[in-house]
Structure formats: C-alpha cells, structure tokens
C-alpha cells in the first residue's frame, strides 16, 4: 500500500483568505501536515499559487475538498512523492 508523502498543486484562489490564512486553514484541517503556499501570480480578484503539502499519508480527495471549501480550485498536480509501505524511513 503506497502513501502520498508530498504533493505540489497548482491552485487558483481568491485574494481572501490570503496565503497565510489559506495555508493555516489547510494545516488546521489536516493535522500533521506541513503546508507551503507560494504565490506566483496576482490578479484583481484571484491569485495563482503553488500549494505544497507534506505529511505521512496525504489523502488527495480530502485535500482537494478542503481547498475547494476555501473558495479555491486545483488546476493541476505539479509534483507528487509517493512511498510504499515497505520502504522504511520514507
């Protein structure tokens, strides 16, 4: 059984909540995860961000639902790191 350890998403989000509140809200709803939000482009009402989430077993559907509930949408999965259960230390 494999587990997602790290995932990088291209996310279009509204300006509010800002990157700090956005990252905090994701982290609050996914305890044990480390969240990084990098803003790459800012428009009048939206901004394009790269959301990096690291954890022991990230459930993509839950993560996408959280991002959706914050008014944002996942455009693409830009990178992913998956490890199988029989690889200790990963």
């Amino acid at each position: 059984m494999s587990a997602v350890k790290r995932i990088v998403l291209d996310v279009l989000k509204p300006l509010d909540p800002d990157a700090l509140a956005f990252a905090s809200a994701i982290a609050d709803r996914h305890p044990g995860c480390r969240v990084t939000v990098t803003v790459s482009e800012v428009d009048a009402k939206t901004e394009t961000t790269l959301v990096t989430v690291e954890g022991d077993a990230i459930v993509y559907d839950d993560l996408a639902a959280t991002i959706g509930s914050l008014g944002a949408s996942v455009h693409s999965i830009d990178a992913v790191e998956v490890s199988s259960a029989d690889q200790p230390g990963r």
Partner: peptide, 16 residues
C-alpha cells in the same frame, strides 16, 4: 458572483 466569474467556478459550497 464576481468572484465566481473570476475563478470560473461555483463557490456555493465554499466558505465564501
């Protein structure tokens, strides 16, 4: 409504 247009999506289930 303006935000939905900017995001090209439905925000009905969102915090907004």
């Amino acid at each position: 409504h303006e935000l939905e247009q900017a995001l090209v999506g439905n925000l009905e289930a969102s915090a907004h």
